[in-house]
Design a protein around this nucleic acid. Structure first.
Lengths: 241, 241
DNA sequence: TCCCTGGCAAGTGTCGACACTATGGCGTCG
DNA sequence: CGACGCCATAGTGTCGACACTTGCCAGGGA
């Protein structure tokens, strides 16, 4: 996948969303298309909250719903389990995995660390051109923040992060982050809903890209990390969970 | 799982190995035991090199070999693919995934970053008692290095790392590291075979545990990271791949 | 009333079968 | 003599069936 050119048209956020949800998983999608289609469908439903935590997902109902046999459904459920979206207890009915605050914190900690790595690698490996392409994402984010478009901001932010990951020249890293992102999108709505959060975040992004341009490894890593952790603190402060 | 008490008896390295290979994956093992048994068996074979990269693993042969139908085999193959040990091209025969130096580097970079995180968290969260339990691992490692027991050293090292991860109080992190470890064990024999490597590594471990005892976050993280990266450099220097 | 027990329904794990597709060898034709 | 296309074969993806397990409910005994 090329470094994802920035999007200026704010209308197709939906397409961006669909692209980014599975960005890194697309390549693998081993197995048949049916299994993967079911996986994708279910993953989206879970991530977007249509299938709430704890909801039962038994293979018979799903098979009926998708007009298939249980075999591909079972395989999809296995994949979902590996992504942490579903729990499949032996001999019992599978259900959508619950989200605990403790887990949210765990995932954010990991993300913070990995994005710090991404930033280090970007500083070391990205060309000036590529870095300036991040400036364009930055402009889009500023615009979203100015107009208060929270949803647009969120997805453009994901796009920015994904573009960074691509510039790190580390495919494994990209894949792991995408998998973590899938988990994280489940509680995304919590992290950006606070007043003032958007503007803070924009400022952080600006500092980050500037650090890239200055080729300042330490600063870039630090900003990148704090950017993620700020999101975590926002969730904790929101009092939900 | 409790913080894995240090082992002084060097005889049962084999048991340690079996325990550690799947440490974090054990808990999840959703699905049936048959699928997971096949998964474990194949994963071990791949990791230990009995199934070399590129080797075909088609579901019919495996089903015959395990005396089952193809269904559990297919499910196991899917899980193996998620772990990156197998590639399952649509409509084509699955095969053991190749290992490229580029991938080795990618994985080591990620591990370095995550173990730095582990060390930060250990400093912040582990009790004095827990840290002193790491000293006991350290003693075992010193002994292995002194007697030149490379295999023992390797597995005790993995045990040490696993114990650290447990002390980080971050289950997700533990799981991701275990998954990465599975991948990494495939080229483990490369990283410790160089002369002098063992003693270097022991010294690093000592510095690390000392940093824990001193509650020095920055130093612990730095040492932890460099410990992993040193392994990478050893592999690169070995000239293989 | 509450607990225990036995049976029932729903759902899982596994199986063997079947159609479809990729692959490699063979014959055909330029 | 080499390239191209056809065909058999091996293997995949999917299906429906079946036995076994689990959780639940009703009925009977304390």
């Amino acid at each position: 996948m090329p470094p994802s050119p920035p999007v200026t048209n704010g209308a197709d956020v939906a397409r961006l969303r669909q692209d980014l949800l599975f960005s890194a998983l697309r390549g693998i999608e081993g197995s048949s298309s049916l299994t993967f289609a079911i996986f994708e469908e279910l993953a989206t439903s879970i991530v977007e909250g249509r299938l709430p935590p704890g909801h039962e997902v038994n293979s018979m109902d799903l098979a009926r719903q998708f007009n298939t046999s249980r075999t591909p459904v079972r395989e999809a459920l296995l994949l979902l389990e590996r992504e942490g979206l579903v729990i499949v207890p032996p001999r019992r009915r599978p259900f959508v995995s619950p989200v605990a605050l403790s887990q949210v914190r765990e995932i954010y900690e990991i993300r913070a660390s990995l994005y710090a790595l991404v930033s280090e690698l970007v500083v070391q490996r990205a060309t000036d051109e590529e870095i300036s392409s991040l400036w364009r994402w930055q402009k889009v984010l500023e615009n979203d923040a100015a107009t208060g478009d929270v949803d647009g901001y969120f997805w453009h932010n994901v796009g920015f992060r994904d573009a960074e990951a691509a510039l790190s020249r580390n495919g494994e890293l990209q894949r792991r982050l995408s998998s973590l992102g899938l988990q994280m999108h489940r509680f995304r709505h919590l992290s950006l809903s606070l007043p003032g959060r958007l503007l803070n975040s924009v400022a952080d992004h600006e500092r980050l890209v500037r650090a890239y341009a200055d080729r300042d490894v330490a600063l870039a890593a630090a900003v990148s990390k704090s950017l993620v952790l700020r999101g975590l603190r926002a969730i904790e402060a929101s009092g939900r969970f």
